[in-house]
Deep mutational scan, measured.
Amino acid sequence: MATGGRRGAAAAPLLVAVAALLLGAAGHLYPGEVCPGMDIRNNLTRLHELENCSVIEGHLQILLMFKTRPEDFRDLSFPKLIMITDYLLLFRVYGLESLKDLFPNLTVIRGSRLFFNYALVIFEMVHLKELGLYNLMNITRGSVRIEKNNELCYLATIDWSRILDSVEDNYIVLNKDDNEECGDICPGTAKGKTNCPATVINGQFVERCWTHSHCQKVCPTICKSHGCTAEGLCCHSECLGNCSQPDDPTKCVACRNFYLDGRCVETCPPPYYHFQDWRCVNFSFCQDLHHKCKNSRRQGCHQYVIHNNKCIPECPSGYTMNSSNLLCTPCLGPCPKVCHLLEGEKTIDSVTSAQELRGCTVINGSLIINIRGGNNLAAELEANLGLIEEISGYLKIRRSYALVSLSFFRKLRLIRGETLEIGNYSFYALDNQNLRQLWDWSKHNLTITQGKLFFHYNPKLCLSEIHKMEEVSGTKGRQERNDIALKTNGDQASCENELLKFSYIRTSFDKI
C-alpha cells in the first residue's frame, strides 16, 4: 500500500482533458527560462521544448504516446526543470519506465491550478516501474492521483506527508504495488545497510526511497516546507523545498512566496507586481503582455491589467481597466465587458449561442446573426445582446428569417469595421425574408467608422429604411451602385405612401 494514499474509496472516473512563447529569463536562482504550460502528445517531438525550461508557468501534460519505446527515452533528460506552477499529468506514455532521468531536479509542483483537485496525476502508464522524482520536495496545493499503472512499484516507500501538507485526498490505487509483488529495495538494503531515512506512518517504520538508488530526502521537522541542505541544516524561511546553503534567500532552489532578481522575498516591493503567484514583474512586463494579447485571437491570451499590486489576466467583477495605466478602477454604474472572439468572429444561430455573449459591452471581433427560429426570440436576444455598444469588426445579418427588427441591439452605437466582410463591408444584410426595420432612427444613433453597407434580398425592408441608415451611420456616399439592390429590397412591402385627393359631386333626387 502506498504510504499516505487512500484505498478502496469510491472515486469519480478520471477524465483526461485534452506555445513556446518565453516569458522571460528567471535569473540567477533558476538555471534556465520560464516556459508556458505545455500539452505534449502523440510523439516526442515537442518534448524537446523543455530543454531550457527551469519553470513551467502553467501545467505540463505528457500523454497518448503509443509508439514510443524505452530506448526512445534513454537520452532524454531535462535537468534544468525545477518547478511547475500548476500540475504534472502523465497518461498512456508507452515505453517510459521512470522519471528519474527525465526530470531529475523537479523540486516543486505548486498546484496553482489543479487537474480535478490533483497536482500530480500518473494514470495508465503501462510501462512505468517507478516514479523516480527523487528531488520532489513540495506539492504546495492539491493532491496526488496514481492509478492503474500495472508495473509501478516504489510507492509504499514514499512518505507523501513530507511532500504535501495533507495526504487525506491522495488516491493511489490499482498499481502493481497493490499486489505486494514489488519487493522494493532501498539503497544499501541488499548489503544489509540502512542508507535512507525511515519514518513512521500508520504504525509502520519504513525506509523512504524513490528507487533502488535514490533515497527520499527527509528534512528535520523544524525546517517545515522550506527544505534543508545535504547536511540537514534548514533553508531560509522564504525558500521552498530545498537550498544549497542554509538561511540564505539567494540560495533557495525555489521560493515559498515570490522570486525577485535572484532572491526569494515575502512580497513584491514597489515598483514590482505579483505575477502568477510566484514571481515579481515590473510595469513594462505587464504592459507588454497586455499589448501582445490586445489584437491576438490565441486562446488563453489575456490583456493583463494591474489590481491590488498584482498583474492579473482581467479586472475583477465591479472594476474596469483604465487604459492609460492598466489599473483596475471601480465602475460607475454597470461595468464594461470586452469579449474577445477566439477566431475573430462568432455566429449567433440560437439563443444558446447568444447567451455566451451575455453582459458583453464591447465585441472584439465580428458578429454573424443567422437565426431561423426560436421561442420568445426578441426578448431572449435583447437579454443577451442588448448591452453590446461596440463591435470592432463587422455585423452580418444573414438568412435570419425569424427577425423582424434589429432593435434587440438596443445599445449598439459603434461598428468600427477594423475587419470587413469580403474585404469591403462593415454591415452586411443578406436574404432576411421578414426583416422590416433596422432601428427606430428617431431614437437610435449608430456610427460606422469604416467599410460599406450591403443589402440584398431583404424583400420587406424598404429602401427608405436603408437610406436612413446611410445618413445616420455616416456611410452615405461610400456605397457603390450594386451594394444596395434596388429590386430585391422592399419588393414585397408597401414602401411608397402617396396622399390621394378626392373630389365629389353631391346629387339628390331633384338636383344634379
Rank of each mutant, 00 (worst) to 15 (best):
E147F: 14
W160N: 01
S54N: 15
L114F: 01
C219A: 02
C209L: 02
Q216M: 11
K80I: 05
S143H: 14
C286S: 03
A198C: 13
C311V: 06
L332Y: 01
F283L: 10
P270R: 05
P36F: 12
H290Q: 14
T211V: 10
L155H: 15
S317I: 04
L128N: 01
N309E: 12
K129E: 09
H307Y: 03
R110V: 05
H212G: 06
M321Y: 11
T199G: 11
G333A: 12
I158H: 05
G132D: 03
N242A: 11
R141P: 01
D169Y: 08
S284L: 06
V173L: 13
D277C: 02
D247N: 02
R110H: 08
V206A: 04
V55Q: 03
P336W: 13
V167R: 13
V206P: 14
P197V: 13
Y30T: 03
G37P: 11
H48N: 14
D261T: 05
R69T: 05
L233F: 05
I201E: 12
Y272W: 10
C252T: 04
R110L: 08
L64Q: 02
K217Y: 09
S213A: 03
C252M: 03
K193M: 12
F103D: 00
L327W: 09
L96S: 01
C255Y: 01
V305R: 10
C301N: 06
T320F: 09
C153F: 01
Q276C: 03
V173C: 14
C335T: 04
N42W: 11
V144Y: 01
F275I: 04
P70S: 08
Q276H: 06
A198E: 15
E51V: 12
R162Y: 05
R69Q: 06
M83V: 07
E130L: 04
H214I: 07
I82A: 11
C182P: 04
S161M: 10
G188E: 04
L326Q: 07
Q204Y: 13
D277V: 06
C293Y: 02
N105I: 01
T250W: 09
V34M: 14
I109N: 00
L327I: 12
S323T: 11
H290E: 02
N138R: 15
H214M: 13
L133Y: 02
E181P: 03
T267A: 10
G111D: 00
L327P: 15
N309S: 10
A119M: 00
P246A: 14
S213R: 12
N105Q: 11
S143A: 11
E97F: 13
L102Q: 00
S161L: 07
L155V: 10
D86N: 05
P31I: 05
E314R: 14
Y304W: 14
G183R: 12
I172P: 03
I82S: 07
N179S: 05
F66A: 15
R162V: 09
Y273E: 00
L90T: 13
T107E: 05
G188R: 06
A230F: 15
P79K: 02
S77Y: 14
L131Q: 01
C223G: 03
P270N: 14
C186V: 03
N138Y: 06
M125G: 03
H291P: 02
C196K: 03
R141V: 12
V144T: 05
K100M: 08
I172G: 11
F103V: 02
S98I: 01
A190Q: 04
N117W: 06
R41V: 15
H48T: 06
N202S: 11
